[in-house]
Design a protein around this nucleic acid. Structure first.
Lengths: 225, 225
DNA sequence: CCTACCGATCGGTAGG
DNA sequence: CCTACCGATCGGTAGG
């Protein structure tokens, strides 16, 4: 019906969307589509979003989407791949860069919080966690592998803290609690609200692991002369 | 299509489902439908479940559902109402029965964990949290009110703990962390897995609030003569 | 990227 | 609770 009623207003709206895109957003079409789709999937869910919804917000007609993607499912898969892969790589880099187990844990918490509520790809990560069940079965093994790889980083940090006697509970429980709390932030977090991401992250880390006021590495440098 | 192909096998399946229901499950039709719908909504999401799916598992044809409910949305609403109201009432009773702030918090954690992963209505609670965005706008005020009422119980317990000097972080953060961790259990919890609900609940409570080994109320009674 | 469609499936209804 | 449908909408396609 949207296509039979392709009125002059609709044509004009698409023309405007196209013009705006050219000046405001230089992203290649593929990426524009993914950004729009991630945002809509987050708001309405995968099954609650139609290919016509996505196309309309990109400023094209629904049929044109299938020049860029083979199917609606492929769009979902690409969003999740991007999110899962990016956070894996960043988590591994975080572990390498941090100098103490406690800092490893704190930085992982901050990374996940920032990815989920603050980053430019936050909708991608939200979709990865919320729409998992809508993934076609055939795509699950690939993403499960990335998920496990990501979890290894967490377990490694938690076990390092445990070995150093810093953990207030078992490493397994610590990871479950940290993950749950951070992902819960997807629901309640608002920029400018009660806590910033780093504030909440630090509260959370301090709750799970004891911070033996470390060698004064880089925080508050020079506050105690 | 499912209705045009109402084969003899399908008829027989319905007959069997009806017979089994009569002997195995004496629930009134309305409740049977809600149970089935809650289970399917949890597995596939609201938009991923069709009225035909629900009807098939109940053992009737899709048209017959609308003798019991006005619409698919009303089924979702009833599930959420039931879950939200029940947990509100139980939380308030929990606060009354507990004798110390620490016990209040522990029992709230246990209540929510048990509701979400163990209780007979666990799918109802999962749907309440996961399918919120699929609720028709018109129904949100009613459920938001119940949600706020439920949160009051949590805040009350958290603030009582805080006043008693038991909390390792601010009451606001404590509630956010407890809620997130407990709801995260919907994803990873398996009966017979790493932790039982009470074990995980106690780890969680002990992390957030210090247990000043209370007056030996009822736990391990008689262990110290 | 658009035009112009398609077969399938959706939630829901009327009358028994 | 079933029979027999409905209008709308869905994901996707062919040909330009």
């Amino acid at each position: 019906m949207d296509q039979k009623l392709d009125t002059n207003e609709a044509r004009k709206a698409r023309r405007n969307a196209r013009a705006e895109r050219r000046t405001v957003d230089p992203a290649v079409p593929r990426e524009r589509i993914l950004n729009v789709a991630a945002s809509l999937f987050r708001q309405r869910g995968y099954n609650g979003t139609t290919v016509r919804d996505i196309a309309a917000e990109v400023g094209i007609l629904s049929g044109s989407l299938f020049h860029h993607f083979q199917s609606k499912e492929e769009i979902l898969l690409e969003i999740m791949r991007e999110a899962a892969f990016t956070i894996c790589v960043r988590a591994e880099k975080t572990l390498e860069d941090a100098e103490t187990p406690w800092q490893q844990l704190r930085e992982l918490v901050r990374l996940e919080l920032e990815s989920i509520v603050g980053g430019v790809r936050k909708d991608y990560h939200a979709v990865l966690f919320f729409e998992w069940r809508d993934l076609p079965e055939a795509a699950k093994p690939e993403l499960t592998r990335l998920q496990k790889r990501y979890n290894r980083s967490w377990r490694q940090a938690a076990e390092a803290c445990h070995a150093a006697g810093l953990l207030r509970c078992e490493p397994d429980a610590a990871v479950l609690i940290l993950h749950g709390s951070v992902r819960g932030a997807m629901t309640w977090f608002r920029p400018g609200g009660r806590y910033s991401t780093d504030e909440f992250g630090d509260i959370l880390t301090a709750l799970v692991a004891i911070d033996i006021k470390d060698n004064g590495k880089d925080n508050h440098k020079g506050s105690k002369p």
